[in-house]
């Protein structure tokens, strides 16, 4: 536990985090230097993603009931965590797979870092929204909605810029490769699904085979 904590709080990570502050307001320069001038840190990207996950959970618990009403029996912490992590990793993998083929300059590490840094506005704004939701009334809920939209759009915008800078793509190429990545995500998910269902079929086949043998022999 301590070792993890120390690794998180070493100076490189903290530096990376304070660099994230620069990146979200100056995405073009920021993301360029992130990889090309090696200003980013993997640790900082991890921390930002962890913060995002934490905020997702905090949001569930502490958002005012007028804006988010939770049916607790149906909430699972793991589902909440995985709905963020799985698409994120799938996207990184899929984007890496595609951009490697099409002249992207970024490595997997770079892509992961870029996406991680791009999420930085999300925990900030969502935390603000959690506070706001406990102060405003229904009529003033527009602010809440707008802020929600801003937090998502900002992240999306940052991801696009990050990929553009990391891979040294034009905007058109970036958008095309992003769309292709999303398609790739779906394909990966389908293949995984197929694989798992075949795997479970195979397991049950062998299980029944063994049972058959057991019954016949004994």
């Amino acid at each position: 536990m301590m070792r993890v904590w120390r690794r998180i709080t070493n100076s490189k990570t903290l530096e990376g985090l304070s660099y994230a502050r620069y990146v979200i307001f100056h995405p073009f320069d920021g993301f360029w230097d992130l990889t090309h001038a090696d200003m980013g840190s993997l640790g900082a990207a991890n921390v930002i993603i962890l913060l995002t996950l934490a905020v997702r959970l905090i949001r569930l618990r502490f958002t005012g009931f007028m804006f988010l009403d939770i049916y607790w029996p149906e909430v699972s912490v793991w589902t909440e965590v995985l709905t963020v992590l799985v698409p994120l990793l799938l996207f990184c993998i899929s984007n890496w797979a595609i951009t490697t083929l099409f002249d992207g300059k970024g490595t997997f590490r770079h892509i992961y870092m870029g996406v991680g840094y791009s999420l930085a506005p999300y925990p900030l704004l969502q935390l603000l929204m959690v506070l706001l939701s406990n102060v405003v009334t229904d009529d003033e809920g527009v602010f809440y909605g707008v802020l929600n939209g801003v937090s998502l759009l900002w992240c999306a915008f940052l991801i696009i810029i990050a990929l553009m800078m990391i891979h040294v793509y034009t905007l058109g190429q970036t958008i095309l490769s992003t769309l292709a990545s999303i398609l790739g995500m779906i394909i990966i998910a389908l293949i995984c699904l197929g694989f798992f269902s075949m795997f479970s079929e195979a397991v049950s086949f062998f299980a029944s085979l063994i049972r058959e043998i057991e019954i016949r022999v004994y």
Partner: peptide
């Protein structure tokens, strides 16, 4: 009002409480 999930009156009450 929160127990009753009455958002309309909750919002009214909240405004006045605030």
């Amino acid at each position: 009002l929160q127990y009753a999930k009455d958002e309309y009156y909750y919002s009214k009450a909240w405004k006045l409480y605030r």
